[in-house]
Design a protein around this nucleic acid. Structure first.
Length: 439
DNA sequence: TCTCAAGGCCAT
DNA sequence: ATGGCCTTGAGA
């Protein structure tokens, strides 16, 4: 295999498209945009656009309009506060965990592409190989067309079986999955059957209703998140040999869910305006609530009696060990939150900003956001229901319930973290480690 | 000790 | 003013 052929894998600067030289001020950028951003901020420069403030910025045109270039720097997420006022050199900044995880995700993507190359090279060998691993039974029972998962059509059960169960094929299939249904079927091969309460893999396991699949398909971010989860699970299974359906695989899902929550927060209105130190404080304070809320949201939208539907399309029975005793309460709370399903993103904003965090640098701003977000939710409930005041009060009561649930979940995860039963190098561990340092 | 994201320098 | 390369230094 040619490992030298890395050019197409190189990241492009999101500002001008030049070659990336590393993380600069919060984003992977090229050396010239790094320098440009630094000079602009350090020297407090102001620019004017002579066009309509929509100049195209690329390597050849980046010098033409510094105004639009700087706007683009800000738009892609470069941080003003990462330019040091005291001009101190060296050292590390406070973006640490976010950079680290972002890098890990990019590494996974690279690994996927390399695995795909490997797969292409050994293509002929693979299709003639036969084995008797159990997942074939699941795929034969599925209403979904398993051929959709594959790089090319194939009718032989033995060949199909190998293509589904061979780790060397996972990356390729994952790359080829273009909708939730394909991912859901792939999930069963990688993670195990969707009724994970049963340790043995059932040949009669019930399918996910088509309507739920359609719902899951609605949000492209869900699809990307599912891909990330399967990619991580694949890596964990290859490197650490974790078993499908174990706590470790659930932990990987929770970690990826947490990453998507952090990503949502980083780009969400108000929160993105905060200094990174304040963002970190708020996230450290409420990440577990947001995680539980995310799981509940999914339950509200797609769940069925007696179980939690995970983003992978798997259903976890309430007696399952997901978050120990918290799961049952999750289901109960989810039904109560049912009437708020469309306002759950506003609820997330409340959770994010109502955290009881002391010593925020921009506490006044956060207080004003708290009022605005609560106001928005009240307006929403007023517009959507005649008994909105009751619902609003009700929701606030359940937020405290959510807090209790998240504390239980966090304690359980922390216990697992301390006992070393969880995968390493992930954001969830960082959060739990921070808890360990702060308490 | 090593890493890597800061700031600095200087030819263009 | 730009951008490639160098130096620095906290944290892993």
């Amino acid at each position: 295999m040619n490992f030298l052929c890395e050019v197409d894998l190189e990241e492009q600067c999101p500002v001008c498209g030049d070659k990336v030289s590393g993380y600069h001020y919060g984003v992977l950028t090229c050396e010239s945009c790094k320098g440009f951003f630094k000079r602009t901020v350090q020297n407090n420069k102001t620019y004017v656009c002579v066009e309509n403030q929509q100049c195209k910025i690329d390597t050849s045109k980046r010098k033409r309009c510094p105004f639009c270039r700087f706007q683009k720097c800000l738009n892609v997420g470069m941080r003003l506060e990462a330019v040091r006022a005291d001009r101190m050199r060296g050292g590390r900044n406070k973006f640490g965990p976010i950079y680290k995880h972002d890098r890990a995700l990019k590494q996974q993507k690279k690994a996927l592409i390399q695995a795909r190359r490997l797969r292409i090279e050994s293509n002929q060998k693979d299709v003639t190989f036969t084995s008797n691993i159990h997942s074939i039974a699941i795929l034969h029972n599925t209403k979904l067309n398993p051929n959709k998962l594959l790089s090319k059509p194939c009718n032989s059960p033995a060949v199909l079986q190998h293509q589904i169960t061979s780790p060397s094929n996972w990356a390729m299939k994952l790359e080829n999955c273009s909708n939730a249904a394909e991912l859901a079927a792939f999930a069963e091969a990688v993670v195990g059957p969707h009724h994970t309460s049963s340790r043995s893999i059932s040949t009669q396991s019930p399918r996910i209703p088509q309507l739920e699949i359609e719902f899951l398909q609605c949000d492209p971010r869900d699809l990307q998140l599912q891909k990330n989860i399967f990619s991580c699970l694949q890596q964990e299974q290859a490197c650490r040999h974790i078993e499908p359906g174990t706590f470790s695989s659930v932990y990987v899902m929770a970690d990826q869910l947490l990453c998507s929550i952090v990503e949502w927060a980083r780009t969400s209105i108000f929160f993105k305006e905060l200094k990174v130190s304040d963002q970190m404080k708020l996230l450290h304070s409420c990440w577990s609530e947001l995680l539980v809320l995310e799981i509940i949201s999914r339950q509200v939208l797609y769940g069925t009696d007696g179980g939690l539907l995970l983003i992978t399309g798997q259903q976890v029975d309430t007696e399952m060990y997901l978050f120990s005793g918290t799961t049952l309460s999750c289901v109960q709370v989810s039904y109560t939150l049912n009437s708020f399903n469309k306002s759950l993103k506003i609820v997330s904003q409340i959770v994010l900003f109502l955290s009881d965090v002391k010593e925020l640098e921009e506490h006044r701003f956060v207080e004003s956001v708290q009022q605005q977000v609560e106001g928005a939710l009240l307006k929403y409930t007023l517009a959507s229901s005649s008994q909105s005041c009751n619902r609003f009060t009700c929701l606030q009561l359940y937020l405290s319930e959510l807090r209790s649930l998240s504390i239980l979940a966090e304690d359980y995860l922390y216990y697992k973290h301390l006992s070393g039963e969880v995968p390493c190098n992930n954001l969830l561990n960082e959060m739990l480690h921070a808890k360990c340092c702060w308490t």
